[in-house]
Design a binder for these strands. Structure first.
Length: 832
DNA sequence: GCCTTGAAGTTACCG
DNA sequence: ACCGGTAACTTCAAGGCG
């Protein structure tokens, strides 16, 4: 069955083939068999061939062949919106005067579209070459009768995907013939589209050839220079198992680069995965290649990787995926090194692998006895990368087919752009025009409510939350840019929903663009979840559909934020503002209902409420919220004990299943020293599980002692902070900025977005002066008192302070009289 | 000139 | 380059004092 014929001869069509050099073309009409080809789309681009734009779709056929499907027929276009009252035929004539042989207007027709839900007649201008679109736009938008030009900034191949409903990272069916004049491309078969192309729904993935790789550069200062520093090792994992390494002989890396390039060309992978490969490996390979005279011609056209949209590197015909892009969304991992992420995901345990800091690399490489360890380390990096690829790429594939962005782009694109491409596809299907992206000043609006927590230890607390609060609000009140009723519009009150506090109005009907999209997304997710129930959790389809429902969820939840993003095409501040206003009203009313039932409300944030766990009353609360407010609320979790300080957004609790939750505190932040986080976590555990303040205090004292005596690894003292902008842009010399400068002074390279790991050394004056990059410092230089006074004690007192523990106690000795047991502090349930 | 204080700058979290 | 709300740290400059 696997080798079943997938290319079915359909009918004989007449194919017009042009050949010959420019200006001397001969046309030939021949009969060829048209076939129906099913292929999974990996990448798409376009190329001008014979003075025509050709859409090139790179994919895998059902029978596992690499295919290139070419469509020569598609032409770029955009819309011209006439000003009110302008005669469209007159405008058409005026625009046609711009027509010329060099950039011909292929057609200019009036079409009926909708713009923000309103019917509108616009002109659709079709040109020959994609680059003529912006040229015509610039010329036309200044015509006095023209209101605006729309959709003139959509990349040609994206236009193609949208208009033909072709899905990247998914199956498509195309009516094709074998390409009469195949291009020089590394594929098994080439076809040319003669009929239709359409998407095919399927939860089966093709066998994709995947390669994971990692390069090692000998860099003495942490600042690899392509003119000098060789690529000493390239490690590769092919198809999830075969491991290959290219290792330099001495410092000559020419053979390494050359054989790696040959290897890729020969293996011809569909997906190439790296870790920070957009930021480092590919750019370095290309510039180093340039320096030593080797072309990194690894794309399916025999060309080099090149920088493309969203800061990613494009390799034509393949999906070049930088797994770091996924890691960025893993908020649990604070320092996103490959080994940390792999460890977190269970791909490769950190303490069971070789770790070599870049500072030690030269030493390992130059010492013949240590070099094998270094080589093994490099291989482990590629293996970790491969492990990450297996964890992340299935989700990326679903995001890609859902949003319509090619895999390599969707991974690199920010959330806002993913939402936007999804919306643009929907807009096309619904005959809606896409608004232009315009530059707007940043603008704020009021957000959610956060309740003042009831300080102290509470027992038996349920956490209730609204199910998808913002999407539900959007659907219920039909909030969308096209249903928004401006203050100058006169619409009867009964026809609109009016937001509390802010007073923004939205038409009750018809359903707006966002409402329709959200309903469809929510229905789709429900359907996918149903499908999951019918599948075995170990089946490949289960994984595919599960990742798909996750992708749908992510998109649904980002819809509100998108409306409030000033960079959004469908930006609509009143809509975003109304959503949060209704959200505030909702939670306030829910609190009132809870209190009315006699439930104590301990805390709440945006869409959640912490209330005393009285099952009967909770059920009643859920019912009342459903019936009186029209929203769904559910019990998310139940705490046996939960502890709040006076601070919002910070609490810790013991769940009924025995798990300890820490929210917001230092222990879950990435910018505190590991030792402080570790101690705080342990203290929280002792307190919540055992209820012993004394035990916690004793434990802290022990650690304080260890720190004083330097009885811990330096790594636990490193404070990691992101350098969010260029060094020159800082107004204040913060410690991590000062540490970063010290790296630069030493010859290292630091760029915006990097995490700086620093420690505080002994001395006087500003902290910044005493902040040094961790690799420049020895344990004996460490200022232990800083770590005790400004890291461990504050983190610990945040919790223990409530129980009467003082700084003095922790530093010097105990004050038993002042300490009470945990059970003296229950703020509820004990004093009847 | 020294010390206190509060504003400003900065980061990372919560939902 | 999805939102606002929030805690907490360090720096920095202004203001008070002598």
């Amino acid at each position: 069955m696997k080798n079943a014929l997938t290319i079915i001869p359909l009918r004989v069509v007449f194919q017009i083939i042009k050949y010959g050099k420019m200006g001397r073309q001969t046309t030939l009409k021949i009969g060829v068999h048209e076939l129906k080809l099913r292929f999974w789309l990996i990448d798409i681009n376009y190329q001008i061939i014979n003075r025509e734009p050709n859409i090139l779709m790179w994919g895998v056929s059902e029978s596992g062949e690499r295919v290139l499907v070419v469509d020569r027929r598609f032409r770029p276009y955009f819309y011209v919106v006439p000003r009110k009252g302008v005669d469209i035929e007159m405008l058409k004539a005026k625009i046609m005067k711009l027509n010329n042989v060099r950039s011909p207007i292929l057609s200019l027709e009036a079409v009926e579209k909708k713009y923000y839900g309103k019917p509108i007649k616009v002109l659709k201008l079709v040109t020959l070459m994609p680059d003529q679109v912006p040229a015509y736009r610039e010329a036309i938008k200044n015509i006095p009768e023209v209101e605006d030009c729309l959709e003139a900034d959509i990349r040609f191949y994206m236009r193609y995907l949208i208009d033909n409903d072709v899905q990247p990272s998914g199956w498509n069916e195309a009516e094709v013939v074998e390409h009469p004049s195949p291009l020089k491309a590394s594929v098994d078969k080439q076809y040319i589209l003669t009929g239709n192309i359409r998407r095919v729904e399927s939860s089966i993935l093709p066998q994709l050839k995947t390669v994971s790789f990692d390069i090692e550069v000998l860099n003495p200062l942490g600042n690899p220079r392509p003119e000098k520093d060789p690529i000493i090792i390239v490690s590769v994992v092919a198809d999830g198992k075969s491991k290959v390494q290219f290792i330099a002989d001495g410092n000559d890396d020419k053979p390494v680069i050359k054989s790696f390039v040959e290897f890729i060309r020969k293996l011809d992978p569909d997906i190439i995965a790296g870790y920070n490969s957009n930021g480092f490996d590919w750019p370095y390979l290309v510039s180093r290649g340039k320096h030593v005279g080797i072309k990194i011609n690894v794309n399916r056209f025999g060309g080099e990787p090149h920088p493309s949209v969203y800061g990613h590197i494009s390799i034509i015909g393949r999906a070049n995926v930088d797994l770091y892009d996924f890691a960025e969304e893993l908020t649990e991992v604070k320092v996103k090194s490959l080994e940390n992420v792999a460890d977190y995901l269970g791909v490769m345990e950190k303490d069971k692998r070789i770790l070599i800091d870049w500072t030690e690399m030269a030493e390992y490489w130059n010492d013949p006895s240590k070099r094998p360890i270094f080589i093994k380390y490099a291989m482990q990096d590629a293996e970790s990368t491969q492990g990450l690829a297996e964890k992340f790429i299935p989700f990326g594939i679903q995001l890609s087919s859902l949003t319509g962005l090619p895999l390599d782009q969707v991974v690199a694109a920010a959330v806002g752009f993913r939402v936007e491409w999804f919306l643009m596809r929907e807009a096309y299907k619904q005959n809606e025009l896409v608004p232009n992206r315009i530059e707007r000043p940043y603008s704020t609006y009021k957000g959610a409510i956060v309740l003042e927590p009831k300080r102290g230890m509470h027992e038996n607390i349920a956490v209730l939350d609204f199910t998808s609060m913002y999407p539900s609000i959007m659907i219920k009140y039909n909030i969308s840019p096209d249903t928004y009723v401006g203050t100058d519009e006169n619409i009867p009150e009964h026809m609109v929903w009016k937001a509390p506090e802010v007073g923004h109005k939205f038409l009750k009907s018809p359903p707006g663009f966002f409402t329709r999209v959200l309903k469809a997304l929510i229905e789709l997710r429900a359907k996918l979840k149903e499908d999951l129930k019918r599948l075995s959790p170990d089946s490949p389809e289960y994984r595919v559909i599960d990742e798909r429902q996750r992708a749908v969820k992510v998109l649904t939840n980002a819809m509100y934020g998108y409306l409030g993003w000033t960079g959004a095409r469908w930006y609509c501040k009143p809509a975003a503002e109304a959503i949060t206003a209704w959200g505030r009203e909702l939670i306030t009313k829910a609190i009132d209902i809870a209190r009315g039932l006699g439930l104590k409300v301990i805390y709440g944030d945006t869409d959640s409420l912490f209330v005393s766990y009285v099952p009967g009353k909770i059920d009643e609360l859920i019912r009342l919220v459903r019936e009186e407010l029209g929203f769904e609320i559910k019990v998310d979790k139940v705490y046996k004990r939960v502890f709040f300080t006076e601070a919002k957004k910070r609490y810790c609790g013991l769940l009924i299943d025995g798990k300890v939750d820490i929210v917001g505190f230092e222990a879950v932040r990435g910018d505190w020293a590991e030792i402080a986080k570790e101690v705080q976590e342990r203290v929280v555990n002792i307190l919540l599980r055992e209820g012993s303040v004394e035990k916690a205090v004793e434990y802290v004292k022990g650690v304080v002692d260890d720190v004083r005596n330097h009885k811990l690894p330096l790594s636990k003292l490193i404070i990691w902070k992101t350098l969010s902008k260029k060094l020159s842009e800082y107004e204040v010399e913060a410690p991590h900025v000062a540490a970063a400068r010290k790296i630069v002074e030493r010859g290292g390279k630091i760029s915006a977005g990097e995490k700086i790991g620093y420690v505080i050394v002994k001395g006087s004056g500003k902290l910044s002066n005493r902040a040094y990059p961790y690799f420049m410092v020895k344990m004996e230089d460490i200022d232990s008192e800083y770590y005790i006074d400004r890291q461990i004690i504050p983190a610990v007192l945040r919790i223990l302070g409530y129980f009467g523990v003082t700084e003095k106690t922790l530093r010097l000795g105990r004050e038993p009289s002042k300490q009470r047991t945990l059970f003296d502090f229950f703020a509820s349930g004990r004093k009847k």
